[in-house]
Amino acid sequence: MQAPENLPVVVIVEDDLYMQGILSQCLSGPFAPVVFQNGMEAFSYLQQGNIPDIIISDLNTPVLNGIQFLEQVRTSGFFSAIPFIMLSGVDNTDTRIKCLEAGADDFIVKPFNPRELEARLKIILKRAGKLVLN
Rank of each mutant, 00 (worst) to 15 (best):
Q47W: 12
R115F: 12
T75I: 12
I56C: 09
A3R: 14
I12Y: 02
G21I: 08
A128F: 10
E116T: 12
D94C: 10
N134Y: 11
S28Q: 15
F69M: 06
M19A: 09
A42T: 01
E118F: 10
Q37T: 12
L117R: 03
Q48I: 08
I12G: 00
D106T: 04
K122L: 07
P30A: 03
E71G: 08
D15G: 07
F69Y: 05
V13I: 13
D94V: 15
Q2I: 13
I124W: 09
F112C: 03
N38K: 04
L117Y: 06
G77V: 11
P8N: 05
K122S: 10
E41W: 09
E71V: 14
P33E: 00
I124T: 08
I108T: 06
N60L: 13
I12N: 00
F31W: 07
V11K: 06
I54R: 00
I97H: 14
V109N: 05
V63A: 09
F36Y: 06
K122I: 05
D58A: 06
L27E: 01
E116W: 10
L46Y: 07
E118P: 06
R115S: 14
F78H: 15
R115W: 11
L100C: 04
S88G: 03
V13C: 03
L125R: 02
S76L: 10
V132F: 11
R120Y: 08
M19Q: 15
I124Y: 08
D58E: 14
A102Q: 10
P114M: 01
S88C: 04
P111V: 06
E116Y: 13
V63F: 09
R120Q: 08
T93S: 15
G49F: 14
A42R: 00
P4S: 04
S57P: 05
K130F: 07
N60D: 10
G21V: 08
F112I: 03
E116I: 13
G103H: 09
N38R: 03
L27S: 02
F78I: 14
V63T: 12
I56L: 14
P114H: 07
D105E: 10
G49A: 12
V9Y: 03
N113M: 11
F79L: 04
Y18K: 11
M86K: 04
D15N: 15
Q68R: 14
I85R: 00
E41Y: 11
D15P: 09
A42N: 02
R127K: 15
V11Q: 07
Q37K: 15
L64C: 09
E14S: 02
A119K: 15
F78M: 14
P111L: 06
A128C: 05
N50P: 04
D105M: 01
V34F: 05
E71D: 14
